[in-house]
Write a protein that binds this DNA or RNA. Structure first.
Lengths: 125, 125, 125, 125
DNA sequence: GTGGTCTAGACCACA
DNA sequence: GTGGTCTAGACCACA
């Protein structure tokens, strides 16, 4: 259910984080559902255990999941209630847009790009 | 004329690159103008010489400036003609926006952010 | 597999760049193959790490290779698609030939030289 | 009579050398003719005296000119008899062509370039 | 272990 | 004085 792009510049732990959030966003995972175990995910995706651990640790500190020792990792009651997730993503957008503006990119070019990205997934909503 | 944020995640050589492009964008530096020498910038900004050199080397390979041994570094005839600069900046925006979308950020939030960033410099144009 | 001439006027990072391109040209390295790590090459060739890094950084900005943090450096899908590489090499040839012409070298002398250089590698193809 | 391109990557002393050889090649300067003085050339071309001195010193060591203390610099009896001039120019061509070959440039591309360069000056011969 | 950034400092070519 | 190359070594992010 999770696809990793090894060629991407986006860190793998980040890709794992994003895809789990997306699975929650789309209702595949619901509150208190148990996620795949760290070791299972590590085997399935052929990713180092430490990389999965980091993704889960950050999801937990963002309040998206909670872990129960000896049981596993579960989706929180209100997984997307924490605004920090969106905020940190927006901060990255701000950095990239500010830089693009400095490089001579116009507002229209950026907005067209944003439209394209959001339209791409329209059929999924 | 150049301001460096040592705490930023954006590499210093990248900040130097962007600010020089911005100075050209705003007409402060014109084609064939000589830039501050590498050593002067290094002293003024209190940055290692090699960091400035890297910024200048990338600007040169992007066609923004040209260097003449023993003379100095000068703005190219057509400094912003190379589309690669804008393209690579746009690619970074695409990555950040895609990620933000996955994190639950709405199209409106992104667009508002873009507006704010572009309006910020409106008085300078 | 890479030979460096320390006495040559050609910068070492340039020699490394050219030889890696040659290894790709001759099919030794194929798309998505992983290159020797920066540290390994540095030890093997007894060259400073930063010199290798510069060669790799330029190869990456030319689109010949891509790097993945924590993984390594890999050959691009279309490593020789970027015409800039050939173009900048041709520019250097133009400069040298123009100068030779001014020095009284005849067209025949230049062409014989070119034939010799291209025949040298004929047995390798 | 001498034109310097400050934007060129070719060192200025090299440009001065080449142009003086060209003036001899085309018969403007004949054996035992006196060249412009170093100081005159320096003023005319707005080039540092040391740069002209270096050009003249290399021309003398190549046997193209000879200097007489207190009198000036003169064209040698057999200014282009020294094969070293052509040889060193050919060496530079060899370096550039070898590099271009490594970068994937074909023999035909190089030969076309050579033809273009030699045809360009055909009307001058 | 892998690449990325940065510093400090040496030596060279050119003007 | 100006840029160009190279070395040695530190510290960080990621896997």
């Amino acid at each position: 259910m999770i696809l990793i792009d090894n060629h991407s510049r986006v860190p793998i732990y980040q890709q794992v984080k994003e895809q789990i959030i997306m699975l929650i966003n789309t209702g595949v995972y619901k509150p208190n559902d148990q996620l795949s175990s760290i070791r299972n995910l590590s085997k399935e995706l052929d990713i180092n255990v430490n990389t999965i651990k980091r993704a889960f640790a950050e999801l937990e500190s963002d309040g998206v999941v909670y872990s129960v020792q000896g049981k596993g990792v579960f989706v929180s009651e209100n997984p997307l209630g924490n605004e920090n997730i969106a905020m940190s993503a927006l901060k990255d957008v701000a950095t990239a847009v500010t830089s693009a503006k400095a490089m001579g990119v116009t507002k229209e070019q950026v907005k067209n790009l944003v439209d394209n990205i959001y339209e791409a997934g329209e059929s999924d909503d």
